[in-house]
Nucleic acid binder design. Structure first.
Lengths: 198, 198
DNA sequence: CTTTTTCGTATCGACCCGATACTAATAAGG
DNA sequence: CCTTATTAGTATCGGGTCGATACGAAAAAG
């Protein structure tokens, strides 16, 4: 049983790569009018969802799997276009904080880069989607462990997260209190909870 | 219930894009020694699995979501490197047929581009993988319908496929008889079976 | 026998991307 | 303190992807 050949993981890989290619093509079409490349839109989408620990060039580079030099160029372009704002961190003056500008927010709102995907998944039952999310998330976590890469996630399934009250949470790693909405943003210091026995 | 906001599809999209990015980074690392770009390896993998109707530049362009001009350049490079062979079609002398050369086969065997993925998914139960495959496949089919793109698949779930005997199948669209192994290759004239009631 | 359509190639320019080298700020270690 | 090492980010360069456009040749349509 252990060494049995199972092709299904490869089928899943093929689907993921193919969907990735198609969504990139979608992004390319979306960005044509504004002369934006797929990676630019991916960066904007990330910044629209990153929390306070994760809105830096290095975090974005880790997220996209690109080098910091490459990402630096991307950010330079987005800055020139007025789609993002960069400002110094108060404490560590090496780090640059990033956020979408009003124009950047507006652009994402107009382009709706996830619209095609939402249409494509509207007839899939919530339960099947949850199962698929769970399987892919596990693949992602293992893949990143093997690559010593940064894991991203939100507080919902993070082992550092502590619930202080009905609406107030706390990050045990950084010591900050986090509001409800902030617990649903993407974080780069995410640590997966240990799987509990079913 | 109908208009309820459900974020899970977006979570799934994020996972697919992120896994796609990471696998592309993996491909980039794999191809560094041979100076091959991710798209080159993707093309080789496709050609290693394409059936007799699908081993053409146009089919590859549809599969990757790129233009035929772009793919033509990719194939030129792979040909110069001796990784593929191109030859004219006997009947329609416009079309070019492609196949891996011995060197191309050997390269794929050595690089094992799916190895990291197989490791990452080895602890996911076959059942969860099957569910994820099913959900993503549905998303892919809808996505391609909306984009009027070509759907790819194999005979297992194709409505053109007819079983003649234990081991011999037939493609009702093209009229050819297909051996067992060939029914598991990727085909560009795939037509999904109509979903049967459960 | 045109006219149109389809498959593939050639050329060009914009720009992505990694590699390398660099600066500046912080951390570490006496 | 005063090195030394590490980390965040930028600048520059070259190879190569990619879409757009134009082109050629074969097949299909009429």
């Amino acid at each position: 049983m252990e060494g049995r050949l199972d092709k299904n993981p490869l089928v899943l890989l093929e689907l993921v790569e193919r969907l990735g290619n198609l969504m990139r093509t979608e992004l390319r079409k979306s960005g044509t009018d504004e002369s934006l490349q797929p990676v630019h839109l991916q960066a904007l989408v990330y910044l629209s969802k990153a929390n306070r620990y994760s809105n830096t060039p290095q975090a974005l580079a880790d997220y996209l799997g690109l080098t910091k030099g490459t990402v630096s160029q991307t950010l330079l372009l987005l800055d020139r276009r007025g789609l993002i704002e960069r400002f110094e961190d108060d404490i560590d003056r090496r780090v640059v904080r990033l956020r979408l500008s009003a124009a950047g927010e507006r652009l994402l709102y107009e382009l709706q880069p996830a619209l095609a995907w939402q249409n494509a998944t509207r007839n899939i039952s919530p339960n099947r989607i949850r199962n698929a999310v769970s399987a892919l998330r596990e693949a992602l976590e293992t893949l990143q462990d093997d690559n010593e890469g940064t894991m991203f996630g939100d507080c919902q399934t993070c082992s550092w997260s502590q619930k202080l009250s009905q609406r107030i949470y706390r990050c045990g790693r950084m010591g900050d209190r986090l509001s409800g909405p902030e617990t649903r943003r993407i974080c780069r210091i995410y640590q997966a909870k240990v799987e509990e026995a079913v």
